[in-house]
């Protein structure tokens, strides 16, 4: 069986892995690189649990072929915290009960971070539409939206201070 060798920058580190040509990037991350933080809720682009950043844009890693990652910059939930220091979004999810089972959480955090990096002050409606590709069945979204709002406020504050 002819596997394809792929080299990509994953969470800042260059990584090489072998994959089958039809394999999804999500499977490669989870099975080949042991990065199981990205979840598969559907495998068809509908739930967002597999959200990762690819060259600065958020995508469903279940809808990317692993060979397409060649030469790309991939960021996953495992790369969101800086070492042991949580990103403000991660912290706010914890402080505000923004997760129940937590299965959707990695996808939401990656997507919310992508939003706040583009728009530091989104409205509630903008947050809701931006996150519409991420399903959560536990929370009813309320505390997730609030956590993103609070994180945004804190990050704006930090920007003012620094």
């Amino acid at each position: 069986m002819s596997k394809i060798a792929v080299t990509a920058t994953i969470n800042g580190d260059e990584q090489e892995f072998l994959c089958e040509p039809g394999e999804s990037l999500l499977d490669a991350l989870r099975m080949r690189l042991n990065l199981t933080g990205s979840k598969e809720g559907c495998g068809s682009g509908d739930c967002g649990a597999c959200t990762v950043m690819m060259d600065g844009r958020m995508v469903c890693s279940c809808l990317v072929l692993a060979p397409e990652a060649e030469g790309k910059r991939i960021e996953t939930i495992e790369g969101v915290a800086e070492g042991s220091v949580l990103h403000p979004i991660q912290r706010k999810f914890l402080e505000m009960g923004g997760l129940q089972c937590g299965f959707c959480t990695p996808g939401f955090i990656v997507a919310a971070k992508a939003l706040l990096e583009r728009d530091p002050d989104p409205s509630e409606t903008e947050i809701r539409y931006w996150l519409a590709g991420n399903l959560c069945r536990c929370t009813g979204y309320d505390k997730i939206i609030r956590a993103v709002q609070e994180a945004a406020a804190e990050m704006r504050q930090e920007r003012v201070v620094s």
């Binding site: 990065l35 199981t36 933080g37 990205s38 979840k39 598969e40 996953t76 939930i77 495992e78 969101v80 915290a81 949580l86 991660q90 999810f93 914890l94 997760l99 937590g102 299965f103 959480t105 990695p106 955090i109």
Partner: peptide, 13 residues
């Protein structure tokens, strides 16, 4: 909490 916001928690799959 921390395991679940950093992707470390091990779920069924």
């Amino acid at each position: 909490g921390i395991d679940k916001v950093t992707g470390k928690a091990i779920y069924g799959p």
